[in-house]
Design a binder for these strands. Sequence first.
DNA 1: CTACGATCTAGAGCGAGGTCTAGATCAAGT
DNA 2: ACTTGATCTAGACCTCGCTCTAGATCGTAG
Lengths: 139, 139
Amino acid sequence: MTTEAAAPSLSIGEVAARTGLSVHALRFYERESLLVGPVRRTSGGRRRYTASDVEWLQICVRLRESGMPLADLKRFTELVRQGPGNEAERLRLLDTHRQRVDAQIQALEECRSVIAWKVDVYAEHLARDEAGGLWDPTA
Amino acid sequence: MTTEAAAPSLSIGEVAARTGLSVHALRFYERESLLVGPVRRTSGGRRRYTASDVEWLQICVRLRESGMPLADLKRFTELVRQGPGNEAERLRLLDTHRQRVDAQIQALEECRSVIAWKVDVYAEHLARDEAGGLWDPTA
DNA sequence: CTACGATCTAGAGCGAGGTCTAGATCAAGT
DNA sequence: ACTTGATCTAGACCTCGCTCTAGATCGTAG
């Protein structure tokens, strides 16, 4: 494993396709230090991403999708970049986020049930609508 | 019920406390036409909200919390303001939103499981940590 | 060699959703 | 009457998270 044979790398466009991030966003993330290591470049200056860059970005996407602010993601990246020794803090960060996600899911489920109820009210109204009756939900 | 006896009304501050919106946000929502009817004023020009204003705002809060854009909320408000006759469109709007919420919940649950897995990885690592071993998750 | 598309940098711009400020007015307690 | 705190308006400003632009360069297919 220490002897490599032409480590396959990806262009920014390919990484964009694989992560769902735009090429703009990828360059932006890099500027914001959201990548663990520096991205390699070709002799001509084009970025070449490794498989583990892509994996990391996929984790980032999950964390972002679930509402982690870029600032927290940056902090997490820093910790990973610093290497072993700070796992407790990484754990804290992730676990705190997990709790926020749980709260978020719960809040959404409450919203969902309120909305579903409203939907039912309207659906029911429309079902018996043909009979024709005045009905003002503002009342 | 048609004869009223001093309909109790609330100040903007009281409404803020009851809805969780800031007084700034309440004024902003009003400017953006997110309220069904015009808000009453005292002789001195202060806003007085009715109980149904508050109910409406509470629905708005749920819809916003669950990610409905202000533009959609505005559209929904318009429909309600126009009165009976457009229930089908209201239903479509709400049901579309409900589907988005469902999708959101599902996405969050996937994120949650990815995060929970990462949390476990770190927790486990820390548990067997005292034994002391190199461990670099970047590898 | 020529085209043409993908990528480069630095930095400006944008949309959403409020938030805040200034300066004035109102209302209630003492 | 005076003080204090809540509210008023109009409009400037802010954060977040990208997105887009301009103008140059790279690299690959003909």
